[in-house]
Design a protein around this nucleic acid. Sequence first.
DNA 1: CATTTTATGTTACTTATTTCACAAAATAAC
DNA 2: GTTATTTTGTGAAATAAGTAACATAAAATG
Lengths: 207, 207
Amino acid sequence: MYLRSNITRLLQYRSCLAKFQELGFKTIYSYNLGKHIGVSAEQIRKDFSKFNIRGHKKAGYNIEELITTINEIFKKSSPQNVLLIGYGNLGQSLMKYKGFSRSMFHIIAAIDIDPSKHKRKTLVPVFPPEKAPEIIKKHKITIGIIAVPDIAAQEVCNLLVKAGIKGILNFSSLVLKAPEDVQINNINLGNELEAIFYHIQLKQKNI
Amino acid sequence: MYLRSNITRLLQYRSCLAKFQELGFKTIYSYNLGKHIGVSAEQIRKDFSKFNIRGHKKAGYNIEELITTINEIFKKSSPQNVLLIGYGNLGQSLMKYKGFSRSMFHIIAAIDIDPSKHKRKTLVPVFPPEKAPEIIKKHKITIGIIAVPDIAAQEVCNLLVKAGIKGILNFSSLVLKAPEDVQINNINLGNELEAIFYHIQLKQKNI
DNA sequence: CATTTTATGTTACTTATTTCACAAAATAAC
DNA sequence: GTTATTTTGTGAAATAAGTAACATAAAATG
């Protein structure tokens, strides 16, 4: 079982490689890629090796090949539909976020409990919670983004799981309970700042 | 040197403990806390031990004590001022995000290159980039949030570092280059979905 | 007040990840 | 075409993280 860090790095490699490609580079050495990402060359070779990505002795890695292979690893047979739950500030900005479509993810609909937010005829319609199961089934949605207040997060999670969702990106500060086969990744913005601040202070003390 | 996972868990413990406290609980056992967070009891005791948090044999941990001690670890002598760079969709929703102030972080000003967004008299004013160094110095800001397009992210990073910023929460998909003593945490929303999708597929194959 | 129970705290063990070291292969130099 | 150089790929060593085991102390029981 591959750990998160492993595949997170692979995704970083990909976006860095795309930049090198834009600059006209055709090949790259593990050392150079590592230097740009802040990872050791050995780490990169090990990562590649684990995913069966091969380079060329003395000639490094062909960037185009590399990107194609990494794309293959994260391949989606079709663009993936995503359901957004919570159409508040965060939800609305996630809806407008361009980075998702770049990676073949499309927020196809949003859910909110507030009737004043419901809109059926917009590009991305907003529905009440009770419509969620129907939408999930109709559009074969496997991933949900939870951007609701903490108080509602677990309830929303239960609803999604019951409707067949297999992956959740959770922006609430709750640790959600769900069956083993549901993949939950958490983003806790407050904790991110706390962690940064903690590390700053640690670094200052170590000097 | 404590690793990220270690301190991330500690922050999770804190928010979970706060919930138990609201429900009227006075003490908690490592086992119960672990069950609610999805972490082993041993892990929790190890984490506590590492940070010199002590419980009471047979009686578990006093929740109030525990929260106080964890707060002590993440203690800020004063509320921390944060500078937001990029006042687009994401930036605006981060500005409105309530989770930051809960943890004593305050976005005190925003920076954007677009003159039409500049506002000096709002609760949180929006300034042009050239004002950043002055604001950072005046308000003793140590943390910046980068919510600008990739193309501008490294430039913004350089500007912040030059002005004395020591921590950056980076929402661009770039891996930013900065001196060792600057703590950078990355949130790449697109990659989060990719990782979730990858893990879903992995889980399905393993069955 | 002795005995049993229970939960902590730490040590020992296991597993995972990273770094080191170097053989092998491909290119470049002579 | 032989030698030198460079970069990959991978085992071995080192480090880090997580799990299990258990001694210990506090509380509960009788």
